[in-house]
């Protein structure tokens, strides 16, 4: 019994919260329906005819009701965002996973994360340039947030890449990796952080 009371209470509450929203939706569609069948469509026909515009797009148009907007889960924008965040996260992982001994370096989390960080960074730069090309205008100057974001993102990726290459070179020429490459990695992480923060 107790369970039932609780359940119905919860249901009542749910209804309570949903009812105004539902009422509003009904109101909305009512209003829009009126809008659709009213003068507007016919005037648009007249305008279209008068301008000789091809009427084809009117029939091919998907009829999406105004209330149906849902931000798509995967877009170029958020793909770019996730790649950048992942690159930063991998850089952080590399920073906290410095191996203590130098056996089997290629199989350490440190090396794998560092490599992933520059590769993800490169992909982030690529998707950013592709989907936000229209946000860059050189004449806006280097202090423009979007321009600075692009520059720092590129430098961050470059920093990650040079850090990895520096370590690999060390290993190949001296037989052991020194901590010299860390500064490039830290620079990369800093640049990447600021880049993301600027347009967050």
């Amino acid at each position: 019994m107790k369970g039932f009371v609780r359940l119905s209470l919860a249901a009542a509450l749910g209804l309570c919260l949903a009812a105004p929203a539902m009422a509003q939706e009904n109101g909305m569609s009512l209003g829009l329906h009126e809008w659709d069948s009213g003068i507007d469509l016919s005037t648009s026909d007249i305008i279209l005819a008068a301008n000789g515009a091809p009427a084809t797009y009117r029939t091919a148009v998907p009829n999406i009701p105004d209330s149906a907007f849902e931000k798509p889960a995967v877009t170029e924008n958020n793909l770019h965002m996730y790649l950048g965040l992942a690159s930063l996260a991998m850089g952080g992982l590399a920073a906290i996973s410095v191996p203590e001994d130098q056996t089997d370096l290629l199989n350490t989390v440190h090396y794998k994360a560092a490599k992933a960080s520059w590769q993800l960074g490169a992909m982030a730069v690529g998707t950013g340039l592709y989907s936000h090309w229209d946000d860059f205008y050189l004449e806006d100057g280097i202090l423009d947030r979007d321009n600075l974001h692009a520059l720092l993102g590129l430098l961050g990726t470059l920093g990650y890449y040079l850090a990895v290459q520096g370590a690999v070179n060390d290993y190949n020429t001296k037989g052991a990796v020194t901590t010299d490459h860390a500064s490039k990695g830290i620079f990369g992480g800093g640049a990447m952080t600021i880049a993301i923060a600027l347009t967050w």
Binding site: S8, L9, A12, L13, C16, L17, A19, P20, A23
Partner: peptide, 12 residues
Amino acid sequence: VILGLAICFAPA
């Protein structure tokens, strides 16, 4: 329950 319902429909 009645009170709750009354409160939630009052604005209507």
